[in-house]
Design a protein around this nucleic acid. Structure first.
Lengths: 188, 188, 188, 188
DNA sequence: AATGAATGAGAATTCATTCAT
DNA sequence: TATGAATGAATTCTCATTCAT
């Protein structure tokens, strides 16, 4: 009997690349099957539909990233250290797999609506970080949603600029500057 | 105003709302025609295709915004004043028509790829602003692409947070704080 | 603008003929479209799916027949007269459109399960006729379901035998004999 | 009994139940394999195709029944006795395995078309019985096809009424009444 | 300009069957 | 004999666009 996990992996990488390049709805099953060198029907042994595949690729990557950031933050005692560690982690991960981030940040941005679980949502997670800092009097209290938006905006736009080719060097090379910018923006 | 022009306006508003709600490719001509209470064929009296309509809605709004920001910036002598005026203008416009901005920021994020003209591109426009400030020694020289990303990130994420319902008050009410954050982030 | 009702009529006749000849699931949309000289997509302007078309053809014919029989029965005072009139009506209708009855009796026999409404169900209608006759003391009381099955069995099998080509003359030519057989079987 | 033969039996019972419930073409190999707790490919160790399985289930049961009825009829000298014995046998068999009869009577009604062999056909067999009775002057001569249809109609409709749940008691409990009805209908 | 029925290319999906294990 | 992943032809259905009215 054949081992399906190899086929599945290939399927996912090829689908991801095509989704990023052409968009999900412009990518056909034929495209994916051809690129992955599998039969069209094979996709349906792994996912019930194209949409489920697109959703799965988004959700699993998004949740994995959020979970990793959460773990990293918990290990650090202060807001400053948390922020430093998280930004650096994000930058490293981006440089490792820019195609995946292209997908998360642009191609399937609207999928964000499907991440309703507050635990797994990046904005809400950031809000929690700030609420914690307020409680510990690390920084003066203010609207945590505003703070979360600032942090996400600075980091994600730096990534998006690379996705669009406006900036060509690595994310990691800017990581320290991004931390400085965040601290300057929120004055901590 | 003639009949044709009324129909066209209705068509565009209904199409925009549906594009935002379901995405462009998931919105059918039937959907648009039904919502705008016109026949399916009528759309083709105004646009040669669905794609042209989607593109037109995006491009006209995007370019109008970029042009307005350019005009505003030219009227102000210093980076600080330019930034203040631009951020406030953007916030006002967002509050006026959040659905349109939803479309610009998310639903059609990938349309951005089609805006290749540097003159009309928000990032390049921001780069120009910073290069001008460097030349005038208003702030110390650094990578203008980095600066542009910071500014866009801070403002756009504040808008996106509203689109996703994470923040519910008006953009205008945060405008001053956004300017402060930008200046703090880039230290000017 | 074109008039869809012509297309619809043609579609239904062609579909019926093919459903009878090959069975519903063995008949493809392509088959129907080709026979009706319409495009494949046109079918979907009239019915949401092939199944809905198959269902509609069955249900409308079945219900129309049941309703007509009900009207005929109401006009006659006695069981004997009701039976005579109904059998003759059924025989005439069969001879008019054997293909339709082929569909009702065989190709889509299993659709009967979908006719849940007792008002529109042939067996239940027959039961009502007999209950009425019992009440009026026209015949001695017995199980009305048994009586209904006898009547339906005699008439329908005569029709089915023609559908299978076992009997080749018209139903009408046997109508009187069928009435005699029913009366003999139930002794009234 | 070997393993293979057990699997085969289970396969057939599960297939039969599904064919009756959903129809042959709506039943997938996956459905059958799942219900019988075997792998999809295993079915092909026993039958060359799904159609062969469906055909085999129908034909073997149908021919077995016809043969048994033929044997029973041959043992009895008179039409009355033949009819009595056959009706009782049919009723007993129906009560033993209503699902199988559901399949024979409804789900595969169209398979009947494939039983062309006159020897094995129920209608032709009934015709032979009547021709024999005419020759022996047991009853006055008339159209034997008509007589066959009457007999089959009465018995089969009683069975079908049970399949559709209109009648809930056993066939055997109605057997004597069915014989009386047949004799009344044909006056012998 | 407007209508909406019709078109037909093309997309997603199904599923009987095959085949490597 | 059994497995179930893989196949791919066939099918259903979608929908942007056309066109007769």
């Amino acid at each position: 009997m054949r081992d399906g996990s190899q086929t599945r992996k290939k399927l996912e990488r090829c689908a991801l690349a095509l989704f990023v390049k052409k968009g999900v709805s412009a990518t056909t099953i034929k495209d994916i099957a051809h690129k992955a060198q599998i039969a069209e029907g094979t996709l349906y042994r792994h996912y019930v539909s194209k949409d489920e595949l697109a959703q799965h690729l988004f959700t699993s990557a998004y949740e994995e990233m959020t979970q990793a950031l959460k773990n990293i933050a918990q290990e650090k005692p202060t807001l400053k250290e948390k922020m430093h560690a998280m930004v650096h982690y994000f930058c490293e991960k981006f440089d490792e797999d820019p195609i995946l981030f292209n997908y998360l940040l642009i191609a399937q941005h609207n999928q964000l609506k499907t991440i309703v679980d507050n635990e797994k949502n990046a904005h809400e997670f950031m809000v929690a970080i700030f609420n914690d800092a307020f409680k510990k009097k690390e920084i003066p209290k203010r609207d945590p949603n505003f703070c979360a938006a600032i942090v996400l905006g600075i980091v994600l736009q730096a990534a998006i600029s690379r996705v669009y080719g406006r900036i060509t060097d690595t994310m990691v090379s800017d990581a320290d500057q991004l931390v400085v910018a965040i601290q300057g923006a929120l004055n901590f």
